[in-house]
Structures are given as C-alpha cells and as structure tokens.
Amino acid sequence: MVGELAGNYSTVVLMFGFAMAAMAPALVISRMISPRKRSNPVKFLPMECGQVPSGEGRTHFMMQYYPYILMFVVFDVMAIFLYAWGSALLEIPKMATLPMMGFLAIMFGAMAFALYQSGRRRIW
C-alpha cells in the first residue's frame, strides 16, 4: 500500500500542531489581560539604546562569514549522504567503502579550499 509509512510521521505534525494550538492562546490571553497603553509613540520605536533610531534596521550583514553559509549548503548534503551510507554499512561489502572514501577525499579537498578562502576575512 502506498502511503502507509506516512502515518507514523503524522504524530510529529500532530505534536507540532498541538504545540502551536496550545501556545497561541498564551499570546492571546496575554494580549487580553495585559495593559495596552498606546499613548506614547516612543515606546514603539525599535531599541536603539535610548537614542532616536537612525538608519535602516535590516541592512547589516556580517559578510565576513558569508562563505560559511555557502559551505553549509554543500556540506550538509555531504553529511546526509554519509548517513545513507552509514546506516547501510552493516549490509554492504567492505570493498564498497572505497567509493565513499573517494567521495570523502574529494569533499575534504573542497573543504580545505573553502576553509582557506573563508579564513581570509579581508576578501569578504
């Protein structure tokens, strides 16, 4: 039967949904019983250490560390590929580890280069 296994995973969604359903009322109740004074517009300014906010709040980036995110996208794939191999390790012949080692070697090369590049903070 197609779609049998999905039933197991539905409890995770159920848990997710339950937590949302249980926590949203907390916000709603809080909104209901808490005081709401709209008199002072300064209260709703973003935090700027007591100064009047200047400039845009959403413009700043640590570009120096951007390569790490790029690396993450690629090496995340690698890590989960390793899981596909690792979970089946007990069933495959020993020789079959070699391609994975080759894969890892290639990825190590890439990682070494990437770490070298990302270590040079000045070029980012």
């Binding site: 690629v74 690698m78 391609p99 080759g102 890892l104 290639i106 890439a110």
Partner: peptide
C-alpha cells in the same frame, strides 16, 4: 564520485 566532484566544484565556484 561525480556527485562529490560537482559539490566540490560548486562550493569552490561559489566561494
């Protein structure tokens, strides 16, 4: 192996 090469190439190229 090809996949590894592609991933390595992509991360290198992207950086």
């Amino acid at each position: 192996i090809l996949m590894g090469l592609i991933l390595a190439g992509s991360v290198t190229g992207a950086l």
